[in-house]
Design a protein around this nucleic acid. Structure first.
Lengths: 215, 215
DNA sequence: TAGATTGTTAATCGATTAACAATC
DNA sequence: TAGATTGTTAATCGATTAACAATC
């Protein structure tokens, strides 16, 4: 098991290394990676030392090898099945979002509790009722669920997804969700991120003001 | 300036305290909050000690006061203006997402670089061309920008938003973006979160397998 | 060879947790 | 009063950074 901060950085390495491979760059040093991603070379070397590859003195790391082991570690070397609960704007958008499939996540179904929405078409998907969730998860081998309902329904949906047998949940709702220990939950934090930005831009202004008053 | 981990927890406190206020709960102890949000009471007390409120022995913290100071600290006590760049599925969904406005973020416009999309209606919004971005940001006092374009166009959009004068960026694209120091960038990490989940569920399985083989 | 870069150990830094006197 | 809870200091834990011998 890698330390959590390392896991959070792996996707960053992957996107950058993927670019390099596309540009036919064969080698990348810890210093290059650090500069590109805003880290120190020390952190990069520590992180990569967890992976199944070794660097080469004077050259660095093979970009191709690095991409391969990163994808393998993140489990996106194979297709993983996901379900989306909530066929509102956000859920629909995700089910149609090409980047998911391009990166190893295939949507197996989109669900909604609202009768007036069940049956609607969302792209090539037909919105299914919640009662169909367990069988889809079981039959299609779905591992991950996305919670795309309003905050007040999110915990219930989480419970239903866990009950249906998914192993991990991505929560798009702005509310704290509790899950059993056997299930992993990650919050998408869209609103929380905006609030963080709001805090930071306010703090910057405050700092600037202080600086000005220090003249 | 608060430590970054604290800032990341403030929205969690806010959602929970908001619930409590709605339920007419007047007081909450650090132990209650910790249990509800999966923290220790020690962390909660340390975090709240940064805020402009004091607890009361034997009772805890006033939920109303706590909500007020959290909102003020996060800057969501007033409306903040945002622009969305990218009128694809995700950008459109966000512009229509009620939770943003409910939480203090008002969309001032949605923009796209594609001529065939400019002019389309997205809810009550008409998609504007990128050339209109600077004037909207200036005239409406827009502080934050959301990047909702595919990865290969994200850096360019970020540059344009910075040029237009926004103070903070929320990046929904799966790519690392660089911004000048005066601007704050937060990554939404939707795909990265799925990859993290993918890693975690694999790791859990691996652990279980190890456990079994230990019999 | 000389110099760049890795891999790893040790030092530093910062966040979390524990502990407990003060307080209501 | 007795007991619960805060606010804060000190201890612990873990992550990041620095340093440097090994290596190509």
């Amino acid at each position: 098991m890698f330390p959590h901060p390392v896991i959070q950085r792996l996707p960053k390495y992957l996107t950058h290394v993927h670019e390099l491979v596309k540009e036919s760059v064969e080698w990348v040093s810890s210093g290059n990676l650090a500069a590109a991603l805003g880290l120190t070379s020390s952190t990069v070397r520590q992180d990569l030392s967890h992976l199944d590859l070794t660097g080469v003195s004077k050259r660095g790391y093979s970009t191709e090898r690095l991409e391969t082991v990163l994808r393998r570690e993140l489990g996106t070397d194979r297709m993983q099945r996901i379900v989306i609960v909530g066929a509102g704007h956000l859920g629909s958008a995700l089910s149609l979002h090409g980047a998911l499939k391009e990166n190893g996540f295939e949507t197996s179904g989109i669900f909604d509790a609202r009768n007036d929405i069940v049956g609607n078409k969302v792209g090539r998907f037909k919105v299914r009722p919640m009662s169909a969730l367990p069988s889809v998860v079981r039959n299609r081998g779905v591992e991950l669920g996305i919670i795309a309902v309003p905050a007040d329904g999110a915990q219930k949906v989480a419970d239903q997804l866990v009950q249906a047998g998914v192993k991990g949940l991505l929560n798009l709702a702005y509310v704290h969700i509790r899950v059993p220990r056997k299930v992993t939950l990650v919050d998408a934090r869209i609103l929380a991120s905006l609030q963080e930005l709001s805090y930071a831009t306010r703090a910057l202004r405050k700092k600037k003001r202080t600086k000005i008053s220090n003249r």
